[in-house]
Design a protein around this nucleic acid. Structure first.
Lengths: 232, 232
DNA sequence: AGACGCCAACTTGTATGCAAGCAAGTGCAC
DNA sequence: GTGCACTTGCTTGCATACAAGTTGGCGTCT
């Protein structure tokens, strides 16, 4: 590539490739089962295969793609059982975070509630789809991060990637964004007003609602097993 | 590289590089803070930088390395708080797995106990350090996998990488392997004999003991917060 | 017609060359 | 002696060339 317009974009080509493919995946340009190759994507972006290869790897261990040894990379299809599993895991981690936060003391709970409320205010403003995605991420990641366990926070970030993949594959992309924001605000308020028990309940309801809205709720009840194990 | 002895090993060079670096990390050849470069490792292995680069990436998102944009890759140091966080996360996930397993019915509990006992028999035989590592992994991963939630299982595999990193950095590498095996066997037996509640208790004790033996137990008590949130 | 084998078009895997970036050390000017 | 610019040696980032593997189809032989 001689016409390499490398001046126009400082960020690494690998990052551009990663962002591009990820966006295409989340926006439905590539759909479940699609087979894409390094060469094709590289040509589309006007870069070489090397950074695209790197992006493929990252997307693979985030669960978006699956690279077959010498065939290409297929977009991993996501089914109801995946959605159920992800939401169950999220419930487990987020309830743990709430408990750990409560154990850190009243002041920590209050401060976290305040920070989360700020996130919610931003959520009410930003309206672009990708913006909403990002804000939802910050809200839940901050919630889990408040537990003070970086390892769990890292695990949750991994989980969130799969969450986004499911949301993208769901029937309605972000049709219920307003409802999400409202539930987020309720959780944040409960924390800020020192009612952690209610926050727990609201969070469980929120996740159940998210699963239901995604259209993947084949089985009626998400809370039973996860709820009993992490709370009772 | 003309003397490329590529005939001796069919598996991909990237995998060899990954395995080599990982082993070197776990065996203490590279220690915390070490700075290593693609070129050096490539030369050591007699391959080119490309597969080494791929290995670096994999090791980075497994938490072993941290690649600095144009400087090199440093071996991520691990401290007591990391050990605490990992063990807390393990407790959370493994207790969840136990509960989910119990919810799947008595027969599932029994069968899982049987499979875990088989793992323990193998553990008693294999004595090489890397063999013991692998068997411990299979035991705990099978335990978590028995919950029937692949997402949680995937999260746990991620966790286990960090677990191994901690074990490698711990004072005694695998001096207490026999004790581990005994505790594993106790857990498996409890499951096989349909005493899930005791299995829970044994598991919590086992993890607390692992943390203590690692030498990273700066704070006296692991169970308090994690135990209350996930079990009480 | 059916089956077998070859071939051609894809794909990834690896090596290598080149350019750019960062750090430290060197030497010069003041 | 002190401070600064340059140079040198390292590193990664990317592009490209080549090797090897897989797939599907086409032609031929039975």
């Amino acid at each position: 590539m001689r016409h390499n317009a490398c001046m126009t974009t400082q960020p690494k080509a690998a990052d551009r490739a990663y962002a591009h493919i990820r966006e295409s995946l989340l926006d439905g340009v590539y759909t479940s089962g699609d087979l894409l190759s390094e060469g094709t994507v590289a040509a589309d972006l006007g870069i070489s295969r090397t950074p695209v290869r790197e992006a493929f790897q990252r997307l693979q261990n985030e669960g978006f793609l699956r690279v077959y040894p010498k065939r290409g990379a297929v977009v991993v299809p996501v089914g109801p059982e995946d959605a159920h599993g992800v939401l169950q895991a999220r419930l487990l981690l987020e309830l743990f975070a709430l408990d750990a936060l409560a154990a850190r003391g009243a002041e920590a709970v209050r401060e976290t509630g305040r920070a989360l409320l700020r996130d919610c205010e931003q959520e009410q403003q930003g309206t672009t789809p990708s913006g909403a995605r990002e804000l939802g991420r910050t809200f839940h990641c901050r919630l889990v991060g408040s537990a003070g366990n970086p390892v769990v926070a890292g695990l949750y970030e991994t989980l969130w990637n799969q969450q986004e993949r499911i949301a993208a594959a769901a029937t309605a992309g972000s049709a219920h964004a307003a409802q999400d924001v409202a539930e987020h605000a309720a959780i944040a308020t409960a924390l800020h007003e020192q009612r952690p028990a209610e926050a727990r309940r609201l969070l469980a309801d929120h996740l159940a609602a998210v699963l239901h809205r995604s259209g993947f709720s084949g089985r009626p009840s998400l809370p039973p097993e996860a709820g009993t194990s992490a709370s009772a």
